[in-house]
Design a protein around this nucleic acid. Structure first.
Lengths: 237, 237
DNA sequence: CGGGCACTTGATAGTAATCAAGTCCGGTGG
DNA sequence: CCACCGGACTTGATTACTATCAAGTGCCCG
């Protein structure tokens, strides 16, 4: 057994490593070793974790909470690119290519992260090629999501973009509910707007319309019940 | 020396393998071996290489020519996602994740491609981890390009999108010229339009305006001289 | 030289951004 | 506990921009 298995100060990390898809091919001993490499950090809501142009020296894994990755444009707008949640990793660009961060990352709620040092991470990759495969696979998934986003933004009506986001949030954050699926929105109206590239008023209007049509039910600013998932899927086609 | 080094039927492939960034860490012997795994194929302009939903069983490397990767929407529009040129690989999604093709790929001119069988490719990855690193690095680059595209489409004016494309083409296809840089456009106006997500008439108008302002000079339908690169960069900011 | 196709240019209409009030809700302090 | 305050959201009116529709125009190729 690894000498790290019973190291109490790392016990709470192991669950982190165990939950992360990129380490899913490792056995208990290996996970213990990985856990020993991890340090943790906690952030409260609204803190900036990574700043565009900086040079993070570690792989970051989200252990609890949510963060948004976004770019600031000179026109004063904000374009949200990703929302990362439990199990997602980030900062890989700085470790795999030799690049500076190309976007900001900010917490959307209280968030705990795990950090793996650049050298340790690179050693892991060499020792366990399966981790590389997992990462490549995840990078392909991200590419696919971005490709779909581009298709939405370039070739589809705004109705379709709103429906897409709602379905995406439904998949990620939906919970069963009497008449449909209850979704806790990770973003404000303004956040949704800068995620799909429209004005915040437009999001309000489209969501109001969807409510009038009986497709969704809006509960305050942070919750939505999806009553008719198929209708949303029809909007996207 | 590898027994393949003097195998004439593979000589013309070796240059392909040698030119490809993902194999740049291999030595001559290893390259010869890779070359022996490669088969080639030629396409004329306008042929469909990959169809959305199909399941390509090989990694494809562009050896000569250009191809476009695009999605067809139900609204009848086409969204172009990538233009791949000499040295670029594609089809990785089907080999790294277990996914079907999520976009169509069509040649923009006469194109020669190299094919590496799925099993051979996976063996290569296991034997030479550096190839995995190169691929991860390239995937990160693609992510970054898509992230920038999304920023353009979501948060920037159309002027900026046109300027972005022109600068992108300038980087990839520009050649020195008396008064600026001559760029052979890989896409028609309609192609450019579906690359940046606007109507083809809008591309015409914006380019006319840029010509009136003395920033570019349009020569027929397929060439442009960039006279004032800085002006384009200012449009993007 | 003629035909066709891609492109340009102009006119119009539709849609979303912007500007501008309100409204709702949660939190705070009296 | 209630009243007030501020921030986020909704809704309405107007403006600006681009898509669409509709003629031309020019260029390439046979």
């Amino acid at each position: 057994m690894s000498k790290h298995t019973h190291s109490c100060e790392h016990c709470h990390h192991q669950s982190c490593a165990r939950r992360v898809p990129i380490f899913s091919s490792l056995d208990d001993d290996e996970l213990s070793w990985v856990s020993s490499l991890i340090t943790t950090k906690k952030y409260s809501k609204g803190e900036l974790i990574i700043m565009e142009g900086s040079n993070p020296e570690s792989l970051i894994i989200v252990n609890k909470g949510k963060v948004k990755a976004f770019k600031d444009t000179q026109e004063g707008k904000e374009q949200i690119l990703y929302i990362f949640t439990e199990g997602d990793f980030l900062g890989e660009k700085n470790l795999l290519s030799q690049q500076k961060a190309t976007y900001n990352v900010e917490t959307l709620e209280e968030t705990h992260i795990c950090l793996i040092n650049k050298k340790d991470f690179q050693q892991l990759l060499r020792e366990y090629p399966d981790i590389s495969f997992k990462i490549m696979s995840e990078l392909c998934n991200r590419l696919e999501r971005l490709e779909n986003t581009i298709e939405n933004m370039g070739a589809k009506k705004i109705e379709a973009r709103v429906s897409s986001v709602l379905l995406e949030f439904l998949d990620k954050y939906g919970k069963h509910h009497a008449k449909g699926t209850l979704v806790e929105l990770p973003l404000s109206r303004e956040g949704i707007a800068s995620y799909i590239g429209v004005a915040r008023e437009t999001v309000s209007r489209k969501m109001s319309r969807l409510q009038d049509e009986g497709v969704i039910r809006v509960i305050g600013n942070k919750k939505v019940i999806i009553l008719d998932k198929e209708a949303l899927e029809r909007e996207i086609q």
